[in-house]
């Protein structure tokens, strides 16, 4: 739990309790956003429902703008935030695989669990497939290790890689997401209403 445990403000034993609370909140929001329906999630690929795109873009934009302003106010130091290192090869290969899984199954790992909780059979099958996938991945890991660790770029951010300022990137991203919201709303308004 971020700086609270590492700084000794709260006890490390609280980690699981906090994880449980955040997990419940995350699951609740996923379900409330309609992410427990595979048809709703897959809709973004077929062009009849863009809830997934809007929810994720909103989350990213709110977090991004919030962090930029928090950094400006001095409430948070962005240079101290942990950034996951980028492995370009595994990101591309994993991204393509994940995309296929998304379109075929209609879930991503997190949402499949939300689906199980409300009793969806397809989510149950999807999770079964997910566990088989985990097993296969672990079994063949020595052969794919080169891809897994391939194209290491270190903890790099988009702004560093492109050499643009954080503010400019935030502004461009906000514009792109607003255009995406408006554009997808227009597409969706032309579709006939389907009950998902």
């Amino acid at each position: 739990m971020g700086p609270l445990i590492t700084q000794g403000i709260i006890n490390p034993e609280w980690n699981f309790v906090i994880a449980l609370v955040i997990g419940i909140a995350f699951g609740y929001i996923l379900e409330a956003s309609g992410f427990s329906s595979s048809r709703k999630i897959a809709g973004v690929f077929y062009g009849y429902d863009f809830t997934v795109l809007r929810v994720f873009m909103t989350a990213v934009v709110v977090a991004m703008v919030g962090l930029v302003y928090f950094n400006y106010m001095g409430w948070i130091d962005l240079s101290l935030i942990f950034i996951l290192p980028t492995f370009m090869k595994s990101v591309i290969v994993g991204g393509v695989l994940m995309g296929f899984g998304f379109v075929l199954g209609g879930y991503c790992p997190g949402t499949s669990f939300t689906g199980i909780v409300i009793g969806k059979l397809d989510a149950l099958f999807f999770t079964g497939g997910l566990l088989i996938g985990v097993f296969i991945f672990s079994s063949i890991f020595p052969w794919i290790e080169a891809i897994y660790y391939g194209g290491e770029m270190g903890a790099v951010t988009v702004t560093e890689a492109l050499g643009i300022s954080r503010g400019l990137f935030t502004f461009l991203f906000v514009i792109a997401s607003l255009l995406a919201f408006i554009f997808t709303s227009l597409i969706q308004s032309k579709q006939k209403k389907t009950d998902l």
């Binding site: 703008v65 950094n71 400019l168 502004f171 906000v174 919201f181």
Partner: peptide
Amino acid sequence: MNKTYFVLIFILFALGLGALFLPETQH
């Protein structure tokens, strides 16, 4: 589109525009 959406779009746009002019903070 709902009127609320326009308000939200405007707020987000204003915040994004503001971020463009924020000076780099040195902690």
